[in-house]
Simulated scan of single mutants.
Amino acid sequence: MDVWSEIFNFSDYAELLPLLKNSIIACVVLGIMGGMIGVFVMMRDMAFAVHGVSELSFAGAAVSLLLGTSVVTGSLIGSLVAALLIGVLGSRARDRNSVTAVLMPFGLGLGILCLGLYHGRAANKFGLLTGQIVAIDDPQIKSLIIISSVVAIGLVVVWRPLLFASADADVAAARGVPVGLMSIVFMILLGLAVAVSVQIVGALLVLSLLVTPAAAALRVSASPLVVPLLSTAFALTASVGGILLAAGSSVPISPYITSISFAIYLVCRMIAAPRQRRRTSAPVTA
């Protein structure tokens, strides 16, 4: 019973909620950005790459924490380096997975080394792995809004050619779309998105915002208009719902966000299951 009271305890909820204004704003911003970019992550089959970028982002943040410099800047540098390496060296899916698999243990190992050498607050170290949204301050929320806005505006500007290149790169190239440039631009935007997400949900759980909502949306629709809207709605539900539940407990926000995201995904799979069965059982006509 004590365990449940730590997970769900709303006795002081009314007093705590006004203190989470920055956290709620951060969740809304991340939900919108994560829902938008997650569609392209799934279309380009780059869920594994997101995890690789997050590990280098974690390493950059850990190095900055050890050196006493800006954690946000370190996270951004780590993310962008990883994103550009994956984008340049991994033009094909197999190469991309290989580069990602090489970067992941290096980033994680470097980050753990720096955290082991860091003798400051343990909460700072733990937050890089699992997030610390309840401790977000005004400078952090400003940088988060600025970077997320850059990502969202960048996606809007390149949405049509990027969508075409993600759906069928060969046909897009034949039609004159600069597929290589679109790949680099997307990886830069992805690096920025991962960097700000790591600051909130942590390096280990960033997939819950940048992958799971879009994966759920693609289960129930294939429309190029409906999928981004559903993905954004799912990401907002998970992020905002997570902070609202975490406000009434002593548990970090990350388990709530990941659990809500997973529950949405399961519901979407169940909704799509009958349609999938009908499709596979339909007779093939000559």
Score class of each variant (00 low, 15 high):
Asn9Gly: 07
Phe10Val: 07
Tyr13His: 06
Ala14Arg: 13
Leu17Trp: 03
Leu19Cys: 03
Asn22Arg: 06
Ser23Tyr: 04
Cys27Thr: 02
Val28Asn: 13
Val29Pro: 04
Gly31Trp: 02
Met33Tyr: 05
Met36Pro: 07
Gly38Cys: 13
Phe40Glu: 07
Met46Tyr: 02
His51Asn: 10
Val53Arg: 03
Ser54Met: 04
Gly60Pro: 00
Ala61Glu: 04
Ala62His: 00
Thr73Asp: 06
Gly78Asn: 04
Ala82Gly: 14
Leu85Asp: 01
Val88Leu: 13
Asn97Met: 14
Ala101Leu: 14
Phe106His: 00
Gly107Val: 10
Leu113Met: 13
Cys114Ile: 01
Leu115Glu: 11
Leu115Gly: 05
Gly116Val: 05
Ala122Met: 07
Ala122Thr: 14
Asp137Glu: 12
Pro139Gly: 01
Leu144Asn: 11
Leu144Asp: 06
Val151Ile: 11
Val151Ser: 11
Ala152Ser: 05
Val158Trp: 03
Trp159Gln: 12
Arg160Phe: 09
Ser166Glu: 04
Ala172Asp: 14
Val177Trp: 02
Ser183Asn: 12
Ala193Cys: 12
Val196Ile: 15
Ile200Asp: 04
Gly202Ser: 04
Ala203Gln: 03
Ala203His: 03
Leu204Val: 09
Leu205Arg: 02
Ser208Lys: 02
Pro213Ser: 12
Arg219Trp: 01
Val220Tyr: 13
Pro224Cys: 12
Pro228Lys: 10
Ser231Trp: 10
Ser231Leu: 00
Ser239Ile: 02
Gly241Ala: 05
Gly241Arg: 08
Ser250Asn: 14
Ser254Tyr: 06
Pro255Asn: 04
Tyr265Val: 07
Val267Cys: 09
Ala273Pro: 03
Ala273Gln: 14
Pro274Ala: 02
Pro274Cys: 01
Arg275Cys: 03
Gln276Tyr: 04
Arg278Val: 08
Arg278Ile: 06
Arg279Val: 07
Arg279Ala: 12
Thr280Pro: 02
Pro283Arg: 10
Pro283Gln: 09
Thr285Ala: 12
